[in-house]
Design a protein around this nucleic acid. Structure first.
Lengths: 122, 122
DNA sequence: ACAATACTCAAGTCCATGCTTAACTATTCC
DNA sequence: GGAATAGTTAAGCATGGACTTGAGTATTGT
């Protein structure tokens, strides 16, 4: 739990489809809370909660001018997640087939491989 | 909802800390279900459910030899998410301050900016 | 000042998901 | 063949998170 929680909060924010849509919308330019709420068949309050989540993890930024709050994308917001992914892609791309082979050779005389499931996704 | 659901399933898989830990563990080499279950203070069945989620979205792969199921990282598993992120980072890095300025100039005479919240994260 | 606007906050409901328990199947060992 | 091992499945509980409603605050227009 170091900067682990940063990744955690970003993933929790992104896992919500509505929040991803809000991000898409904002990546085409800033918008007020009401402008964001309109296209989604959703109450003001709900969108506001999403915006708070997005802002709390640094994916968006907002400022209130008068009674209007304008939201926009925070440029570097996705960077921590991008880093997390690249950190895990590079080592993963190696040593697994290697170890897999070793394990496959040392372990069984006549392996009866049966791979089921993994196909309920049209 | 095209390959949108692919991103969705990957994010849903990654948002669980336990599943991320399982991925970390597997990125250091293949492991059986019992080997994976041991370090987490968790039942067999729970870990199995996590593994099914990870496999369903293509982040890991597993094969059963005899009564032992061995799991390993699926090399390209994180690629769709990585792509999704890069697609959104490049356009986001531009045109927002631009539009932000335009909006800020056309809208108000004497802006009273007040930015609160965003600090409940120790 | 008063009303309308734009947002904010607090409860409360509802559903998805993580985890457990318990029964069950398939393999291996003796 | 029978017991132990490794995994699998199903049912149920419990929590968290999304969304709503309803009341409240600050700002702007008249």
């Amino acid at each position: 739990m170091l900067n682990y929680s940063e990744i955690d909060s970003i993933l929790r924010a992104l896992v919500e489809p509505t929040r991803r849509q809000i991000l898409e919308r904002l990546s085409r330019g800033p918008a007020t809370v009401s402008q964001l709420a309109e296209p989604f068949g959703m109450t003001f309050a709900a969108v506001l909660q999403h915006l708070q989540v997005l802002e709390a993890c640094g994916l968006i930024r907002s400022e209130k001018i008068g009674r209007v709050r304008t939201c926009r994308i925070e440029p570097g917001g996705l960077a921590p997640l991008a880093d997390w992914i690249t950190e895990r892609r590079i080592p993963a791309e190696r040593h697994l087939d290697r170890l897999g082979e070793i394990l496959a050779e040392t372990d069984q005389p006549s392996p009866k491989v049966q791979d089921q499931e993994k196909d309920e996704q049209t």
